[in-house]
């Protein structure tokens, strides 16, 4: 809540230590340790039910961890409430598998809503910034359309612009292409590539191994609630050490 001390400037952007999460009797996260450096792209891969999404949602506190600790920019946010919670939401942006655009608002309104109501930016300024972002994701001509008239890929790009409008320091991507028709996947991945190139800190849960190989600085393979193996993509993809990793990659990469 106070200004970061000089030591924290070099702290990882996001850090998880021994994070556990249960849903009733289901023990989904069984001790996660992970660090995300500023400006890096971390891809989280793994089979369904491994806890990938839950991990992501713990970072922006959509889920509350039952054990362990979570740091954002050096601050312990594990039990964040009110102001600290607001701090987390403003620093961390999230893009969802189901887009979750506001259907009753136009594309432009979707992107300006939070800056205006949360950051209290004047409407014209927010609109200008929104147009900038929408141009960056290639949707300048759609700003007055409503979400239901857009394709899945277009909606997802709007969702990215919407999250970016809050000037987050970290962006979380929760299987953002899994619900898209194959031909629409590329346009979204392109936007994400550019974002990565521009230096955004990103945590990406994905099935797109090609993307992960190409863009990630760090890959974490998660299975059964623990990170089985993590490291640079060349290591994890070319020379996986663990049996489980090999099996997963064998299954996934062979189609």
């Amino acid at each position: 809540m106070t200004a970061p001390a000089s030591g924290e400037a070099r702290a990882p952007m996001v850090r998880l230590e021994g994070v556990h999460k249960r849903f009733g009797s289901l023990h989904v996260l069984r001790g996660i340790d992970m660090e995300v450096e500023r400006g890096s792209v971390v891809c989280v891969i793994g089979p369904s039910g491994s806890g990938k999404s839950t991990l992501l949602r713990c970072v922006n506190l959509l889920e509350r961890a039952d054990g362990g600790r979570i740091w954002l920019e050096g601050q312990d946010i594990t039990h964040a409430r009110r102001e600290q919670l607001r701090f987390v939401h403003q620093r961390v942006g999230m893009v969802f598998q189901q887009f979750n655009l506001f259907p009753h608002k136009s594309v432009l309104e979707n992107v300006t809503l939070a800056p205006v109501t949360v950051l209290k930016r004047p409407r014209e300024e927010a609109a200008r910034r929104a147009e900038e972002l929408l141009t960056r994701v290639g949707l300048a001509d759609k700003i007055h359309e409503y979400p239901e008239r857009l394709s899945g890929g277009q909606q997802q790009r709007v969702a990215i612009a919407r999250a970016l409008a809050m000037d987050p320091h970290v962006m979380l991507f929760d299987e953002v292409t899994s619900a898209l028709d194959p031909e629409l996947v590329k346009e979204v991945l392109d936007v994400m590539r550019r974002l990565a190139r521009d230096g955004m800190t990103m945590i990406v849960v994905t099935h797109e191994m090609g993307f992960a190989r190409e863009v990630a600085d760090h890959v974490a393979f998660i299975d059964g609630g623990v990170i089985v193996e993590q490291g640079p993509p060349e290591e994890v993809f070319e020379n996986p050490r663990e049996e489980r990793t090999k099996r997963f990659l064998g299954l996934v990469l062979e189609h």
């Binding site: 922006n60 979750n100 009753h104």
Partner: peptide
């Protein structure tokens, strides 16, 4: 849909703002 709340929350909207701008307009329709 629950995702609407999650989107609003992760954008930093307060409960009141979430209700007013996102949930209630959709609910009423």
């Amino acid at each position: 849909p629950h995702g609407q709340r999650e989107a609003a929350r992760s954008l930093g909207m307060s409960h009141a703002a979430e209700m007013r701008h996102v949930i209630v307009p959709q609910a009423v329709r």
